[in-house]
Design a protein around this nucleic acid. Structure first.
Length: 505
RNA sequence: GGCGACGUAGCCAAGUGGUUAAGGCGGGGGUCUGCAAAACCUCUAUCGGCGGUUCGAAUCCGCCCGUCGCCUCCA
């Protein structure tokens, strides 16, 4: 398989570094892939842009596992930095209180998006010792220097500084947007350790009380949990520079080993499409949190939206496109849930062909768009076989398996999402309507309703009544029921096997 | 100013030198259905503009027009 490596600027054959430092006995070394993905700063809810990155790297992980690799996935949590301190102060809570709350909410978001959890989620606060060790090591080797309580990295000692982002120190200087360096030797030198103010969280260090700089934690965690050289390091294109550039500089300077990361993967960024309302309100209204998105769209729809385009391209959030993704998700769900009813002869579907298409697409730098296209084509063929009364359950299993590699569950929404009061109200309305139409036999069914509990019972009762009405050609009542259910978000479908209801999203 | 992207049907979006330009959504026409829905069948683009290279370009080169990202915390 091939992956686009930001470091080389081109697609490269993916061969995991077998000499990766391994911490777990019993894991076949040749199969292991070490992957580090830049995580969150938990001071607010994660937004849909974060979802784009985490869903993509979730797919990377799932696909590598599908291909037989043992992936060790580490993702940091930056629970101490300036923004967090500022937000905690503003809200009048402690830093740990703030970060714990948002870490928990982030976990829920990822679970709801069907993103597999990383194997280790190191937190910056828990890795201070390793960071100090690295900073000290860099000072000892002449790659860093202390000025007062601050420690800076000396970029001029790294000849290949800028190799990831494709720029030279000269070019960066030419940008002329550099702040006059306070006490730095060179304007591009960056902070490894920051002296803290009296009322800020701080740790003891050889340079006095302070806290880590912005880039050092990822080096420390990556080295501690995955080894000095790893296979994949991922993140959004916005952290390519300076964050990842600096990680390389400090990690390679510290360990003396190159490359720090064999494959750098960067996803494009999500642009927030400004609605007319957002333009009006001007505040910070152009952020859509994962939670907000999940209220309107299923996780499958959000994943399809993101995976429909190449991960390195920018993507624009749009309600219209999300709606389209939801419809597409619904179609796949419909197919996946297709029962092999009766099943006469087995359908002749060349699942191998779809399987191969899927792999060929994914092998080419995670071509999720084409992989999805293969799934839609397979779905069509399954449905076609179903129409012909053939058993396509084998193909269905392949569909579900491949969809699973993309993290799609293809699960129908639950009836329990409907409030019970709503279901009762629907029943009462139906009885009233039946009275009006002088269909007393329906009214009689009230007795049965007493025995029924919960939403599912009401729904079954309603569809039962409707079926009876249809048999009597009382389409007025039948259509009344269908219309009211539709208003409540329940769609009815009359199939040859009988009427089924579905919770619409 | 520096570095780098992108512009493909009504919308989203693959494709990066050569048979009929993926797929999704939408729309038109059908099949099925009491009517619907779902599903299936079918129709729906010559690839921003101009010029060049080539037997042949959406795909390579140049220019123009238009969008955008990064260079500063940010997935």
């Amino acid at each position: 398989m091939k992956v686009f490596n930001t470091l080389s600027g081109q697609k490269e054959e993916f061969v995991p570094a077998r000499q990766s430092a391994l911490r777990h006995a019993g894991v076949p070394q040749s199969d292991e892939v070490t992957m580090y993905v830049c995580g969150i700063n938990p001071y607010a809810d994660a937004h849909i842009g974060h979802a784009m990155s985490y869903i993509f790297f979730d797919v990377v992980r799932r696909y590598l596992e599908f291909r037989g690799y043992k992936v060790k996935h580490v993702q940091n949590i930056t629970d101490i930095e300036d923004n967090i301190i500022a937000h905690a102060n503003k809200q009048g809570v402690s830093v740990p209180e703030l970060t714990q709350k948002y870490v928990e909410r982030y976990d829920e978001d990822m679970k709801d998006l069907n993103v597999l959890p990383a194997h280790v989620y190191p937190r910056a606060m828990g890795e201070i010792d390793k960071m100090i060790e690295i900073v000290q090591g860099l000072v000892d080797k002449g790659f860093a220097y202390a000025v007062g309580g601050n420690v800076y990295f000396r970029v001029r000692n790294v000849p290949d500084y800028g190799k990831l982002s494709g720029r030279s120190l000269e070019q960066m200087m030419a940008g002329a947007r550099i702040e006059p360096g306070e006490d730095k030797e060179h304007p591009m030198d960056f902070l490894l350790w920051k002296e803290s103010k009296p009322d800020e969280p701080s740790w003891d260090s050889p340079w006095g009380k302070g806290r880590p700089g912005w880039h050092i934690e990822c080096s420390a965690m990556s080295i501690r949990y995955l080894g000095e050289q790893i296979d994949i390091h991922g993140g959004g294109q916005d952290v390519l520079f300076p964050h990842h550039e600096n990680e390389i500089a400090q990690s390679e300077s510290f360990t003396g080993k190159k490359p720090f990361v064999k494959y750098w993967l960067h996803n494009g960024l999500l642009k927030m499409h400004e609605t007319d309302e957002a333009k009006m309100s001007r505040s910070l209204g152009n952020l859509i949190t994962i939670r907000e998105a999940l209220e309107k769209y299923s996780a499958d729809a959000i994943r399809i939206f993101i995976l429909s385009s190449y991960y390195r391209s920018p993507l624009t959030y749009s309600e219209e496109t999300l709606e389209a993704s939801e419809r597409g998700a619904e179609r796949l769900r419909q197919t996946a849930s297709r029962m092999s009813e009766g099943s006469q002869s087995e359908a002749q579907i060349d699942t191998e062909d779809y399987h191969n298409r899927f792999i060929a697409a994914m092998d080419d730098d995670f071509g999720t768009a084409q992989a999805l296209a293969a799934l839609f084509d397979l779905a069509r063929e399954i449905n076609r076989a179903g129409e012909a009364g053939m058993d396509a359950s084998k193909a269905c299993n392949i569909l579900a398996e491949l969809a699973g590699v993309l993290g799609l569950t293809l699960k129908e929404a639950e009836a329990s999402d409907l409030a019970e009061e709503v279901a009762k109200g629907l029943w009462n309305d139906t009885v009233a309507e039946a009275r009006r139409l002088k269909l007393e036999w329906v009214v009689q069914k009230v007795t049965e309703a007493q025995d029924l509990e919960h939403v599912r019972g009401y729904l079954n009762l309603l569809t039962g009544v409707r079926d009876a009405a249809r048999k009597e050609k009382r389409f007025d009542l039948a259509d009344f029921i269908r219309a009211r259910l539709a208003e409540a978000g329940i769609a009815l479908e009359d199939t040859p096997q009988g009427t089924v209801w579905k919770r619409k999203r």
